[in-house]
Write a protein that binds this DNA or RNA. Structure first.
Ligand code: FES
Ligand code: FES
Lengths: 190, 190
DNA sequence: TCTATTTCCTATTGATCTAGTAGGGATATG
DNA sequence: CATATCCCTACTAGATCAATAGGAAATAGA
């Protein structure tokens, strides 16, 4: 499951759309998003076309047009979007549920590689098929507020420019570990 | 993390080499493996060259030559092999530890997509960086014995042909769930 | 109506990757 | 010596990726 640029931009766009809408800006323009998030405009347009065809966003054109989410954020799962844009989530087709293809192994049942990859697939889908746009937007907003940062694509009329702290590659941080914001029922006690 | 054919064949070859060696056949020929496992011979040769260069297998040529594992199976981690052949495990480079590359996001720290993908990356590496060839070979052998099946590439002198049950796509089964064969210390009680 | 702004649509491109194929050279066995 | 095996380099057809290009259609305000 390698996320292509196309997929990355699509998800970033959706998340931004979600954040903006949550903050009272239900509609964003492609050019706006492209400049603030530093994506190639024309490419982004193509992606929006695809997202629209799949029913994730709707659009209005002409002056003051733009794109907005076409359905509730809690109904947009990441797994589904990624499958649409980048294809199956499974690392190998013989363990894909949505797009199974037999591989050349003479005996699938006793294939060690398949057992391992099945676990990998399950680990991936467990995350991507459970998290929705609503979850991610909520978590992101919380982080933004905690650090008192405004998202860059919301500086339209306001001159308040958000200072972006330089990124250091410390991977220990990050992740979704907010006191069990997880979408499932599993609510662990502190 | 999409496993290419090249990667698939490499891992299958290593697993087969492991199984064979565990059963007393320390050396397999490329042609042998190719026909029994239905892989293109010349392609497999290339892959073996790569595996040899990286120190996973050693070879002997001439008549009765072949390939064998170059080091203990417990020291061959799947993650490392896959990284060698297919590149980084992370779905997106900004969450890769081994091959970090900044992405165009204006603010990595508050990027919702990055948080999600970091979790995906961790889920993947948790499996692939912990399981070794020894683990998979052990599990596979156990399954083979349980079902009284001989691996197809071990029918050299013996005329005993292994009957291969046809595969039905039932993904509920499979996986590595043997009574906690896991490589980590976590040994859960039944 | 005219103009500016926006989305929408189709085509094209250069670069890279994939999954091999082809042909022969080096080396070991008997 | 013949034969079997690994080793090495080159090549390719096709797909995919990440855009870029150019303009048509719709919308809003003057
Ligand atoms: S069954 Fe798909 S890799 Fe073996
Ligand atoms: S930081 Fe890499 S996707 Fe946002």
């Amino acid at each position: 499951m390698k996320l292509s640029k196309r997929g990355e931009y699509a998800l970033r766009a959706l998340i931004d759309l979600g954040i903006a809408s949550e903050l009272g800006w239900p509609m964003l323009q492609a050019s706006e998003l492209a400049t603030k998030e530093k994506l190639p405009i024309k490419f982004l347009e193509q992606i929006f076309t695809q997202l629209k065809a799949a029913g994730y966003v709707k659009s209005r054109r002409g002056k003051f047009g733009g794109y907005s989410l076409a359905r509730p954020m809690s109904q947009i799962k990441f797994g589904t979007v990624i499958r649409l844009i980048d294809g199956p989530l499974a690392p190998i087709r013989c363990v894909s549920q949505m797009a199974y293809v037999r591989c050349s192994c003479p005996d699938e049942v006793h294939c060690g590689l398949r057992m391992l990859m099945l676990d990998v697939r399950n680990a991936i889908t467990k995350l991507l098929d459970r998290y929705t746009l609503a979850d991610i937007v909520e978590i992101t907003l919380r982080k933004l507020r905690r650090d008192k940062v405004t998202p860059p694509f919301l500086s339209r009329s306001t001159k308040l420019r958000s200072v972006l702290p330089p990124m250091v590659n410390r991977l220990g941080d990050g992740g979704l570990k907010f006191n069990s914001v997880g979408p499932t029922s599993g609510r662990r006690r502190k």
